[in-house]
Design a binder for these strands. Structure first.
Length: 260
DNA sequence: CTCGACTCCTGTTAGC
DNA sequence: TGCTAACAGGAGTCGA
């Protein structure tokens, strides 16, 4: 599903919108407009504006417009970004592999006839006007060990819940979290503040490694743990049957043998 | 402020 | 074959 990795790939695709002028806004689904936003208000803010640049913070994609408006796009777990009829990512874990125009929840048309649109079967994404970006923590791609020590490795809450907390570190989703802790050999249910210095370094190093690998390989579904994330799946490292449970409210797979 | 529980969304899939 | 219920997880809300 779209985690920080996928949103970064979406951002790269959205770069093609930079310099183009919005001539039509497609907002057929009020549910998809967040923060009390109406289709009329949104259209008024976007029409005639040029896209000046793209940014990403965690799982939030931002289009900066010529009138100073920041358009925020969220993709939930099933949202795709399509630019000029080309999907930024073809395969999306947990989403439908079909692509139905009926799932178009939001779209922009540019003066040259091109389009940018969100196709989201489950409607878990959304569109925001000038979102408060400060509710998101430091972006996972740039998070230093010091950042993690200050924001993640604290308290009695399960470490995985901390990693998924977007206000602390933004961009880590369920698959990234499981992969990082599996590689680092840390039990996801461990209290976030209980890690030794060495363990903290391992988690930070593996977070950077996982983000790099996933970006290179094209998505958060490309992890080494991923094929084993099924009931009865076995650890690719040592063959032990993986533990399946809820941690931080999310389905969590971990190895009872090498994750402590 | 913190934190767990709950809720929302709907296509897919497992099971009867 | 056709139906139902469970499942997936990002994000917001609520109450202790």
């Amino acid at each position: 599903m779209p985690e920080g990795i996928e949103i970064e790939l979406y951002r790269l695709a959205a770069e093609r919108a930079v310099g183009r002028t919005i001539t039509a806004v497609h907002a057929p689904d009020d549910w998809f407009l967040k923060g009390g936003l109406t289709a009329r208000e949104l259209t008024g803010a976007l029409l005639g504006q040029r896209v000046e640049g793209t940014r990403r913070r965690g799982k939030l994609l931002l289009l900066d417009l010529s009138n100073g408006v920041h358009l925020g796009l969220r993709f939930g777990m099933t949202g795709r970004l399509i630019v000029d009829h080309e999907a930024a990512i073809e395969y999306l874990e947990y989403s439908s592999q079909r692509s139905d125009p009926a799932w178009d929840r939001f779209g922009l048309t540019f003066a040259d006839g091109g389009h940018l649109l969100i196709r989201d079967p489950r409607r878990l994404g959304g569109v925001l006007l000038d979102p408060d970006e400060d509710t998101l923590g430091v972006d996972a791609f740039g998070a230093t060990l010091a950042d993690l020590r200050r924001r993640v490795f604290v308290g009695d809450v399960a470490l995985k819940a901390r990693l998924l907390d977007q206000a602390r570190v933004a961009g880590v989703g369920n698959l990234i979290a499981d992969e990082v802790l599996w590689r680092a050999g840390i039990d996801p249910a461990r209290a976030a503040g209980s890690l030794t210095d060495t363990e903290q370094r391992r988690v930070h190093r593996q977070l950077r490694a996982v983000l790099g690998d996933f970006l290179r390989d094209g998505g958060s579904h490309t992890g080494r743990l991923m094929p084993a994330r099924v009931r009865g799946g076995r650890c690719p490292k040592d063959g032990a049957e993986l533990l399946r449970r809820q941690v931080g409210g999310r389905t969590t797979y971990s190895c009872p043998v090498h994750q402590h």
